[in-house]
């Protein structure tokens, strides 16, 4: 660090993601067709989230289940639209998730070609990258078998190999390293390190705090879809761990109270100037 002028890689400003929860199907239809009135309950998966990532940052997202980590990574990757606020992404972002969306009926090789095609590569680039990806995925003979015959580990290995080898500027890794055997995880981590050296921006969603400590420089702690803390990984993770210990030791009643508070907070209407 210590460079005078930092280049921003991702800027997230006041981003909220609101979902509507409908009791009955009819409510959804009414909400769609009747413009003035609002039907259904509102639920904020994210509320007023702001942070900036500099080029080369490696940021971990932490938080308990359902705190909005995946929603946030999906929004940065451009998979789902934000309800309000603004996301600026400089460069091509790639989301590496366990379920990357493969065509089950096609073979691994065909899926690689299909994905690369959709990412805008031409024929020559595809045939070059294809070999690299196949080698990295270590799928061997299975590469020409339909994806539906793959184990979940094989599927995520394939997905991971594709996303990693297309050389994106920004990587968003959503729990993807937790699958696959140890050897592959190590290899993936090595690849991540390579990206780190190359100064790529990375976001990292994981429940393994140990992995985060060794890998991330910064961390963002989400609670109830809001930013609880953002800063140096060490500090944030210490706080988060303390919170987790506390949470574990809560009585059932206290836990319920905590969850109730969360539910209330998230469904409340957002008052925004």
């Amino acid at each position: 660090m210590g460079v005078t002028k930092m280049e921003k890689s991702v800027i997230v400003r006041n981003v909220s993601k609101r979902y509507k929860l409908y009791g009955r199907k009819l409510e959804r239809l009414k909400d769609l067709l009747i413009p003035r009135k609002s039907y259904g309950k509102e639920f904020f998966a994210l509320r007023d989230v702001s942070f900036e990532a500099e080029k080369g940052d490696i940021i971990g997202f932490v938080g308990v289940n359902g705190s909005g980590k995946s929603t946030l990574s999906n929004i940065i990757a451009g998979v789902i639209p934000e309800t309000s606020g603004e996301v600026t992404v400089n460069g091509q972002a790639a989301l590496i998730a366990v379920n990357i969306g493969l065509d089950r009926k096609l073979s691994g090789r065909e899926n690689i070609e299909l994905k690369l095609l959709m990412l805008g590569f031409n024929k020559k680039e595809i045939s070059e990258l294809e070999e690299e990806i196949i080698e990295f995925s270590e799928l061997g003979e299975f590469i020409d078998q339909p994806v539906k015959s793959y184990s979940s580990g094989m599927k995520s290995r394939l997905g991971f190999s594709i996303s990693v080898n297309v050389d994106p500027d920004i990587l968003i890794i959503d729990e993807a390293l937790s699958v696959g055997d140890k050897a592959f995880a190590e290899k993936s981590l090595a690849k991540m390190m390579e990206f780190k050296e190359a100064g790529k921006t990375m976001f990292f969603v994981s429940h393994s705090i140990g992995q985060m400590r060794s890998f991330c420089e910064k961390a963002l702690w989400l609670e109830f879809g809001e930013v609880k803390m953002f800063g140096q990984a060490g500090e944030v993770l210490d706080e988060y761990e303390a919170f987790l210990d506390n949470y574990k030791n809560m009585t059932k009643k206290e836990k319920k109270k905590f969850q109730k508070k969360a539910a209330k907070k998230r469904s409340k209407r957002q008052k925004h100037s």
């Binding site: 451009g78 091509q92 790639a94 969306g101 959709m118």
Partner: peptide, 9 residues
């Protein structure tokens, strides 16, 4: 959409 939405398509 599940397959295609993960990218700028």
């Amino acid at each position: 959409i599940k397959i295609l939405s993960k990218m700028n398509f």
